[in-house]
Amino acid sequence: MNLLEIKNARKSFDGKKIIDGVSLTVTRGKIVGLLGKNGSGKSTLIKLINDLLTLDDGEILVNGEKIGVNSKAVISYLPERSYLDVSKKVSEIFDYFEDFYKDFDRDKAESLVKELELSLDMKISKMSKGMREKISLALVMSRRAELYILDEPLGGVDPVTRDRILKTILSNFGENSSLIITTHLISDVEKILDEVIFIDKGKIVLQGDADKLREEENASINDIFRRKVQ
């Protein structure tokens, strides 16, 4: 059974098609890059998978089931924007995750926070944007989820932090899980990808194995993307 299956998904805003008949599958144990320009529909598709938007048409299945409580229990999602309650301390956010997610590993989260040179006693309101992103990443990667969805995890951070974030993602990602990462910074992530999905104007332009594509096209994913997505 596919971990994630999207069948003919459609979503429009004010008559404008943002997601236009997208169909794709994600199997277990893969790192999938959902790549597209700004405004191509990446985040909308991710929001649809996470029940943050309603589908106009089509179907999204996780482990063969429609989006709901069961899918949310196995998806660990890092949104583009910070969802942290600014009035809370890091430790209080950990309490919240511990209360609601059975797969949340607090020890792992605490060690990740130390690794990322942050403190549990820090208040979210006192943190910079980069620090908040690191905390969010620690929360998401500390769940033993089946599907990790990271929406632009590298946006707005410096190259050193980018490397650290990628290292954190890779070292905390289980073998039987899959990971979908969306970004427009293709060259930064292409080395870790097993599969790539190019999205443009709400449509899937290309989906395939990253290594095979490099071999067939004799080019990097970044170059292939530039060729396919004008």
Partner: peptide, 13 residues
Amino acid sequence: KDESYLTHTLPVT
């Protein structure tokens, strides 16, 4: 608002 990204992704109906 922003916090809804957490609220609606909780495994709760």
